[in-house]
Each structure stands twice: as C-alpha cells, then as structure tokens.
Amino acid sequence: MSTAAAPFSGGLAVTTTGLTKRYGARAVVDAIDLELPRGVISGFVGPNGAGKTTTLRMLLGLIRPSAGTGEVLGHSITDPASYLARVGALIESPAFYPTISGRRNLEILAALGRHDRRRVTTLLAQVGLGDRGGDVFKSYSLGMKQRLGIAAALLPDPELLVLDEPTNGLDPAGIREVRALLRELADDGLTVLVSSHLLGEIQTICDHLVVIDAGQLRYQGAIDGLISAQTAEVVAIPEHATDLARLAAICTGAGHPGRIEDGAVHAPAPPEWAPELNRLAMRQEITLAALSVSRGTLEDAFFAITDTEGHQILAHAPETEVTA
C-alpha cells in the first residue's frame, strides 16, 4: 500500500486500524487502516467486490467488523449511536418505500432520527425535486431516486456525508449539479466520502483518494499524488530528430528510462524533473523544441496499482499539462 504525504490539516473524520470483515474463510475487507481528513471530499474507489460497500457499512454500524477498530467523528464504530446523528449516508442504490411519496419517505426518516421535518421541503428543492415530492417513489426515474437519496443523506445536516455512487443514473446536468453541491458542502466544512466507479468524476470532484482492491488498501492520500507518482511522464522533443537517441540516453542516465515515440522522448518522471532535463540537454548542446509533462488520468493510476481489468471503469480522456 502507498500513502501520499497528506496536505490536509483539519484533523481526521474517519480512522480505522486493521478493519476486517470475514465471511467464513474469505476476507472481504482485510485489515484496512483508513485515515480520512476532515473538510475534504474523499473518493473511495475499487473494482466490483473490492470491499467498498462493506467498509462503508461497517463505518455506519450496519455490519459488525470481524476484527480491527475504527473511529468516526471521534467515536468508536462499536457505538454508532454516538455519531450517526451527525452522519448522512446513501448506501448502494437509493432505497425507499415504493408506494409512499418522496416527501413522506423523507418525513419518516426525519421523524425516526428526530430531525427537523421542516428541512424536508428545503432539501427537496435543493436536489431539484421541489415539484415532484408528492409523487410516489416508484414513479421516479433513476436520477430522481438518486436525488431523493442525496436529500435523505442531507437530512441530519451532517458533518460527514457518505455517498455510494451518488451520480449513478443522473444525466450530465444532474451530475454537474451534484458535483457543485458536493463542492459547496465541502467548502462549508463538511467531510464527504464518495464511492464511485466513475474515475473521471472522482478525479474532478475529490481532493483525497482511497483505493482498495480485493479487500486491501492500495492507496490513500492526495489524488494528485497518486496520479503524479503513477503516471506522470516528461515528454521532450529535440530541435533535430538526430538528437533523439542522445536525449533518451540522458533520461536513462538520470534514472528515468527514456523511450522514443512519435518523434519525442518519453521519460516516466515527476513533473518537477522537467527543468532538470532541460538543463541536462543544454549541457549536451541539445536544443529542445518542446518540453511538457503528461499527467495521465486517475484511470491510468488506478490500473497501475490494482490488478483489475477494469471492465466497468469509465474515465475521461487523458489531460496534458504543458510546462515549457
């Protein structure tokens, strides 16, 4: 497991030590040590069956851990009643009573949690269901159900929001609205933990990332840290193509194996190494026509640290950041 130096200073909202869930001999979650910083949006990614939902359920007191300890908002996960009043959650697909209206479903949850029922109207409007709250849940589209699930998660005015696939079923406009909503909530100091298969979406909205695979923690830390560490490449194009081989040798000599591809030298290296390559090339009297850093995507990084084939993984196209 790799952990990037955490640039987050607001303390921790969630910690676990050796958190494990076994069903028979099979460990679905295997000794995970989580540290989720407060006040940021953390992405929680992993292939199907990686143990994401089981981990979330353990944090929410729905599943008993087989071993290990954990704290949520400073309270032990063995006593969920001590912190769940400050936690909102949408786990897996949104589940409500199908023959009851969206509004009544929220009122039922508000009554159960002794939350202010007047918030229901506000929340329905906030998630764009202001005029459909009176309709029965089973008549909702998948996107509307998802919005109702988010409204239910926001009912307790939470300090920690746990969302499992919150943009599932939403149209592009809906996804953008959820993204804006989460950013707004995080800006107000809310801690958000988002589990998703949409790596591009995670890359867009999250500050912090947790990757698990086969029940084990593969990475946690700043999202940029993972992408840079796993996928960054310095790309240099010499003024004269005859210098390509020498330039590649310079890279290799500096510990970043250079390869020639499409008239450019590619060297896996952190972005900070690009100026050094420029200096090394100048010393060898090689003039660079272009020098850039290719960062790759979260998807590239994800595949680099997990064993998955990633059939269900979707991501945006790679981005390239020009630095020289």
């Binding site: 359920r57 929410l60 007191g61 729905l62 969920p80 009643a81 769940l84 936690v87 959650a89 786990i91 897996e92 697909s93 589940a95 409500f96 009573y97 199908p98 949850l109 159960l112 949690g113 939350h115 239910a152 009912l155 307790p156």
Partner: peptide, 22 residues
C-alpha cells in the same frame, strides 16, 4: 418484512442505530 425487501432498513438503521429501541 418490507424494510428488508426494499432495502429501506439500512436507511432506517443509520437514522436510529439503537436497534432494540427501533
């Protein structure tokens, strides 16, 4: 029974985790 079949039970127990009281 519908709390189980609809999946609503997980929502309910997040709002009231004291199961015997629930």
């Amino acid at each position: 029974g519908t709390e189980y079949t609809t999946g609503m039970l997980r929502n309910l127990l997040v709002r009231e985790p004291r199961r015997v009281k629930f």
